[in-house]
Design a protein around this nucleic acid. Sequence first.
DNA 1: TACAACTATTATGTTATGTCAAGTAGTTGT
DNA 2: ACAACTACTTGACATAACATAATAGTTGTA
Lengths: 108, 108
Amino acid sequence: MDESQLLKGILEACVLKIISQKETYGYQIIIELAEAGFNNVIEGTLYPILTRLEKKKYIQCRKAKSPLGPTRKYFSITTLGQEHLDNYLITYKNTIDKTNHLLFDKKI
Amino acid sequence: MDESQLLKGILEACVLKIISQKETYGYQIIIELAEAGFNNVIEGTLYPILTRLEKKKYIQCRKAKSPLGPTRKYFSITTLGQEHLDNYLITYKNTIDKTNHLLFDKKI
DNA sequence: TACAACTATTATGTTATGTCAAGTAGTTGT
DNA sequence: ACAACTACTTGACATAACATAATAGTTGTA
């Protein structure tokens, strides 16, 4: 089953969450997402997310040399980004709760 | 917070689930979704979902007069639709499990 | 009769976001 | 020189939710 539709909205929050835990860069985020089970998230998916998050001022960027490759762009979360994430988690939990209820017959 | 992105893929499954429980029609589904907490699902959202589900042969349709309004289109789930739903529920649960893990710090 | 309110479906266009495919470029090791 | 790994960019595409409006049948009431 294709889960790409299901990831809409979720992936962006996952990326923001990862950045909120520590300053990090795109390539590393792809690795962490894969370790978390999001195996199919490739560059063409991630980098646009980072661009969007930065445009919305949820994250900020600084460039630094990598010890073993091209220059990295390190991202960290902003106060606005943390507020947005906290807010999102509430909406997410509400939505998933009611969806579970409906999809898994917790009533009838 | 706008949850519309979060609903992608979820809504279609919820509609299929509702139809799987009993034969029903669009207007009634909107009411049931609202009762389940999906308050903002309006015609412009629901009817295209029904069209899609029918095109994919997940549901089938029969027309019948309403006792108090225009003709209704009653939908019921097909065998293919039930298979798809069962399949979807597995994918959904996997995705939500790993997302919860990542978003709610069940590791570090 | 006319009109409002409720029931019920259809159609058109917009927007957001994940995905594919391809390309650019720095570093290391053979 | 070349492969392999690291690291980011870009453009075109598909999908699905959403907004808005139109169409139409039924009931009740002024």
